[in-house]
């Protein structure tokens, strides 16, 4: 079969709703797109532990600390499921981590913003995980079976992430004036970055068309963003928060909330590395990755010595 015929057959499988297994034939570009997307998704989960880790030792109660710890642990798990899926494209984890460290691989820009107050733990769970859930629920239908399986597992776990975040914010909105202000301030800072999580407009998105054709994603950035806006605006109003957008209005005909144009200059600037925490996030990762090297080396040396012992016994 020629490359072209293979590609045609591949597209037919996709159109028929079949799932692609790691050992199946797939076009080079499909592989590359998926590898880029899955590895960046994995890096996002891992880097995303840092802004929340920042408040772990300052959680206001034992209950809050246990919850935050469990959530962060889940995010580590999400990162690992996704690294495993990305590895099926023949690039091992060492290389992926090197790409993260060199800046060749990106991660979600949302994690380049600082967590200034405890309310930010609420806003992250509610908004950032909320946006992630909208995106991941769509990705659970992805044509590449390992990505879709990882998404199904992740979506199940995300359920509590968003609820615990909203609970934190709702509790603060029931508190003192200072607490209410803190919650509002947090929403003011996280609102626009969380809308940016869905990526550029469909018209500006370079990879969108291919991704839709291959059913890597089955809904567009703007559709997903609108779904998130509609849900979130009502959740905000429900507990007395104000969405920080003067142009916010409900369109009775479309039955959607309309918002201002997003500040895309800021978005691209953070993607390019100029966000408030880009440098901090990567240097932190490099530092602890290198500090853990002796542990990995010891575990390998231990296994090697045991292998030797075992083989000498069996002789």
């Amino acid at each position: 079969m020629t490359e072209e015929e293979k590609e045609k057959q591949f597209q037919q499988r996709i159109d028929a709703g079949e799932k692609i297994e790691p050992r199946d034939w797939m076009p080079e570009a499909y592989k590359q797109t998926l590898f880029r997307q899955i590895s960046q998704h994995a890096h996002s989960e891992i880097i995303g532990m840092q802004p929340e880790g920042n408040w772990l030792l300052r959680a206001p109660s034992l209950r809050a600390k246990k919850i935050l710890l469990a959530k962060i642990q889940d995010e580590a798990g999400h990162g690992l499921y996704l690294y495993s899926a990305a590895e099926t494209f023949g690039i091992d984890r060492t290389e992926m981590i090197a790409m993260l460290h060199s800046g060749k691989a990106k991660y979600s820009s949302i994690f380049n913003y600082p967590t200034l107050t405890w309310a930010d733990m609420g806003a992250i769970g509610w908004l950032v995980d909320g946006a992630a859930i909208v995106n991941q629920t769509m990705l659970a239908k992805c044509s590449y079976v390992l990505y879709s399986r990882a998404m199904i597992r992740i979506c199940k776990e995300e359920g509590f992430h968003q609820r615990q975040g909203y609970e934190i914010i709702a509790k603060m909105m029931n508190g003192t004036t200072a607490q209410r202000n803190m919650a509002q301030d947090s929403l003011n800072r996280w609102w626009e970055p969380s809308l940016m999580m869905f990526g550029p407009h469909d018209s500006e998105s370079t990879h969108s068309k291919d991704s839709m054709k291959w059913k890597i994603k089955v809904e567009s950035n703007d559709t997903l963003r609108q779904r998130f806006i509609d849900r979130t605006v009502e959740q905000a109003h429900h507990i007395g928060l104000t969405i920080p957008d003067k142009n916010l209005k409900y369109n009775k005909t479309t039955m959607h909330w309309e918002t201002s144009e997003i500040n895309w200059d800021e978005f691209w600037s953070v993607v390019k590395g100029n966000g408030p925490c880009n440098y901090q996030r990567i240097s932190h990762h490099i530092h602890y990755h290198n500090e853990g090297k002796w542990v990995r080396d010891c575990a390998t040396a231990f296994e090697k010595s045991r292998e030797k012992e075992n083989s000498s016994i069996s002789i």
Partner: peptide, 10 residues
């Protein structure tokens, strides 16, 4: 980081 060890896969 070439010799960085990430352990075998299971």
């Amino acid at each position: 980081m070439k010799n960085d060890n990430q352990f075998p896969q299971w």
